[in-house]
């Protein structure tokens, strides 16, 4: 049987999630036996030709040419999955979506005329159909290997869509929100990080994005009772998953 082909693509991002792939170590060697890596700029130099069984996308769509490129990749691929906060939620660069983009450009670049970018950074799912989204900034390497292998062997990825609290309680961590009034985003955030921050006695700040059905209004109301202003509550969500949190808040509440 012919091995399935995989292509790994980068759009606007920091490369950290692709690097997670190289960090898979033992697993990456087995993965290359399960699939033929047809395109992976971070690891090798082959040009993109023909069709793919699996396209893995890192990075958000933030230029006109990227819009064309993502459509081209989708048309070549049987399955397309996104990895990380940029591809799945627009990334930290989506903060510009609610700001004056031209003013931003002028602050950063001496000659902003050369900058060819869209005024908004958007997740891949705003442009093409996405078969699976792996959240996180950065993604968890174990989850990545689970998702890749699942797609290659045709099984449902064993990744839950529930809140971080579920994972946190499972680990027996004392709740920082209830016992200390820390503004912890756990109740509205997807699990997957292994409870990094609450394990270190800190509040979750939402790296894995909003869980499905996140009740952001209620949680912000709780933080306001703790003494945070409405503005501060909004800023807590305005990080690498800003687009997804804002969308969840305005569309679902």
């Amino acid at each position: 049987m012919k091995k399935p082909t995989t292509g790994i693509f980068k759009f606007t991002s920091c490369d950290g999630c692709q690097l997670s792939m190289l960090n898979l170590e033992d697993d990456i060697l087995r993965l290359t036996e399960l699939t033929e890596i047809a395109y992976f700029r971070e690891g090798e130099d082959n040009p993109l030709v023909g069709h793919l069984d699996l396209a893995v996308i890192e990075g958000s769509i933030s230029t006109e040419s990227q819009k064309k490129k993502i459509t081209d990749i989708r048309e070549r691929s049987r399955h397309l999955i996104t990895i990380g906060a940029c591809a799945t939620a627009g990334g930290v660069q989506a903060l510009r979506n609610w700001a004056d983009f031209d003013a931003f450009k002028k602050i950063v670049y001496p000659k902003p005329d050369y900058i060819d970018a869209l005024p908004a950074s958007t997740p891949v799912s705003e442009h093409v159909h996405v078969d699976y989204e792996l959240w996180g900034c950065p993604i968890d390497t174990l989850e990545l290997s689970e998702v890749l292998t699942s797609f290659l062997i045709g099984k449902r990825p064993g990744i839950p869509a529930h809140s971080l609290c579920m994972e946190c309680k499972g680990k027996g961590i004392a709740c920082v929100l209830v016992s200390r009034e820390e503004p912890c985003l756990g109740p509205v955030t997807r699990s997957g990080c292994g409870v990094l921050c609450p394990s270190l006695n800190r509040a979750c700040y939402g790296c894995f994005g909003p869980m499905e059905g996140a009740n952001i209004e209620t949680l912000s109301g709780i933080f306001e009772r703790f003494g945070y202003s409405a503005d501060e509550c909004r800023m807590m969500l305005d990080k690498m998953n800003t687009y997804a949190f804002r969308k969840e808040r305005t569309e679902k509440s």
Binding site: S163, N215, T218
Partner: peptide
Amino acid sequence: ARRDLECGNCTQV
């Protein structure tokens, strides 16, 4: 339902 975070904490404890 308006107050409910559906975080699941109640069920875990």
